[in-house]
Structures are given as structure tokens and as C-alpha cells.
Design a protein around this nucleic acid. Structure first.
Lengths: 161, 161
DNA sequence: TATTGTTATACTCTATAACTATA
DNA sequence: TATAGTTATAGAGTATAACAATA
């Protein structure tokens, strides 16, 4: 990628891992705050952990509880409680796995899917609006970085977990 | 920025606001999960909201309570409780503002600053480690995007707040 | 015995409503 | 009366420890 190198040089950037780490720690919580606020303001009465759990269950057919817990970085008891709430609200269904009766098979209900789409749409649209002033190049940069970071942090199960 | 345009074209990217929004919503929670886990694993007994509050108070001399609440996107009562805990732990000091006795002047204690530096250092170093495999160009991309996003979301006080 | 999940218990986080003190 | 913060109350999020059921 010669061209990237040229740009980097012409912009006088000097990004090393430590700089990136500092900037991520400065930036990501602010974005998360925005997302959490938008989820709340969607008025659907769903919280961020519930939203994340719904997202995971929606794309993971017959998800066992521990997979959901692991994805969100929670303990099994915490996830069990979370799922309690989602089941009580009729958004998620608990079934026993067919192959192993110890294990759960979590699934999203039609109501849950509708809720998920609705909230996700609202948040996406607010996120998009907030980026109204960005130039095409800036959007490319954000998009590219998100792809890189997803590869790094989706995989990253921090040591000790 | 002609060169960026060339790269964008050569990489066949097509990032619009909606795509970025989708990717942010997919990526940022995973990074946040990593950060929260690392804060916990620093073993200092400090939580993410406490860490964020400490960070804000550290760089905002004599911060009023409401400024801290606003920065984190919390209600004043929620922040009051958070500060309770930090004061109880000896990390933050509550004083009355000199000009207005209704208002607080929050400050970080030496112990608080030490704690903050320690946890922040640990998290930064784990973040840096996680990016070990990235090429120079990828680090530049992340760094650049973080700068753009900070400008967007630091300012963005979502509607209704 | 090891694995999967739940219950028990105890905090922290967070909101809204009601209140106090100051301006 | 309006503002800054706290207290009251309630519920969600989260952990560790202990437990039950299954493999």
C-alpha cells in the first residue's frame, strides 16, 4: 500500500500502537455514551445490554447462554438475569438444546426482532445524522478503521477471561 | 485531499454515512467491552463509570457536579452517587465553589490521580498489545478515524439531553 | 467428576420524584 | 422563582459463591 504511506507522510502522521491506544481510550467511551443515549431515547424501554444481547441472539441461532455471556463479556449469572428480563418482556425464548439438555437454545421472538430492528434503525439513523458534516474521505477513513478494529477486538478475548 | 480519493477508489470503498453508522454500532461495543474488562482486571477495584469520572475531574479543575454528569451522559442524582463512592474511596474531594455556594468544585486527590494513572496505563498497554499485528498504515487509519470521531461525538450532545 | 445454568446475596449504576439550600 | 445538588425509592446490571441437573 504505497499510496497510504504517501498520505501518512504528507499528513505528517506518526501513529504507533501507544498513540492509537490513547486515542481509542479517549474516543470510544464518547461514542458509546452517544449510542446508549440513543437507545434510551428510542423510547422502547430497552437497555444497552439488552440491545446487545438481542443482537447476538438474533444472529446466533439457538445460542447457548454461555455464548451470549462470553460475547458480552459477562458472567453466566449476569447473563441469566439479563435473559430473565428479555423473556419476561416476550423478546426472547428459552428452550432446551436438542442435543444436550444442560444447555439452552436461546432464540429471538417476532416481537423481539421487531424491537431490535426498530431500535437499531433509530440508533443508526442518529449516528448517520451526527456524521452529516463529514467529507467523503472522512467517511472512508472511519469505515476503514472500523473494519480494522472489528478484526482486532471481536477476536480479542482479553487474557484471564 | 486528492490522494485519499485515489486510495478510496483503488480500494473500491463505498462508505456513506449509513454504512459508517452500521459499522460503528457493530464495532464500538466490542471495543468498549475490551476496555471495561481491562479496567476490571487492573485489579484496582474501580469501575468504568468511576474511571471515566476520574478522567473528567482530573482534567477539569473544580468541576461542578452537573458538568461531570453531562460529560458522562448521566443524571445529576446518578453522578452524585458515583461521586459518593469516589469520595468514600478517597479518590475525589468535594468542595464548595468559591463563587457560588450552591455549586460543587470537584477535585481529584493525589491517591485518585495515582489510581487513574495506574489503571489508564494498564488499559492503554493492553490496548496497544492487542494491536500488535497491525501494519503501520492500519495504525494510521485507526488514529485518523479516532480524531474524526472524537470531533463528531465529543461535541454531539444528542437531542433531548 | 466436569459442565451448564440458576439461585442467593451483595454491590454498583441509573432513573424519576421530592426535597434542601442558595441565588 | 430558578438553579445545584442530595435523598428517597425503585429497578437493572454485575460479581462471587453455592447449588441443581445433566453428561
Amino acid at each position: 500500500m504505497l499510496q497510504s504511506a504517501i498520505i501518512a507522510k504528507s499528513n505528517n502522521m506518526k501513529a504507533d500502537k501507544e498513540t492509537c491506544a490513547r486515542e481509542i481510550l479517549e474516543t470510544v467511551p464518547a461514542v458509546m455514551r452517544f449510542i446508549r443515549t440513543q437507545i434510551r431515547q428510542s423510547g422502547k424501554g430497552v437497555t444497552l445490554p439488552q440491545f446487545r444481547t438481542l443482537t447476538f441472539i438474533n444472529r446466533t441461532p439457538d445460542a447457548p447462554l454461555s455464548a451470549a455471556a462470553e460475547h458480552l463479556g459477562l458472567s453466566n449469572p449476569a447473563m441469566s438475569r439479563l435473559v430473565d428480563g428479555l423473556v419476561r418482556s416476550g423478546l426472547v425464548k428459552r428452550s432446551a438444546a436438542s442435543t444436550n439438555r444442560r444447555q439452552l437454545a436461546l432464540s429471538i421472538t417476532p416481537k423481539g426482532r421487531e424491537m431490535l430492528e426498530c431500535v437499531r434503525g433509530a440508533v443508526r439513523s442518529q449516528l448517520a445524522d451526527s456524521m452529516d458534516g463529514l467529507a467523503k474521505e472522512e467517511l472512508e477513513a472511519v469505515s476503514h478503521a472500523m473494519t480494522i478494529m472489528r478484526a482486532v477486538f471481536d477476536a480479542a478475548k482479553p487474557v484471564g477471561q
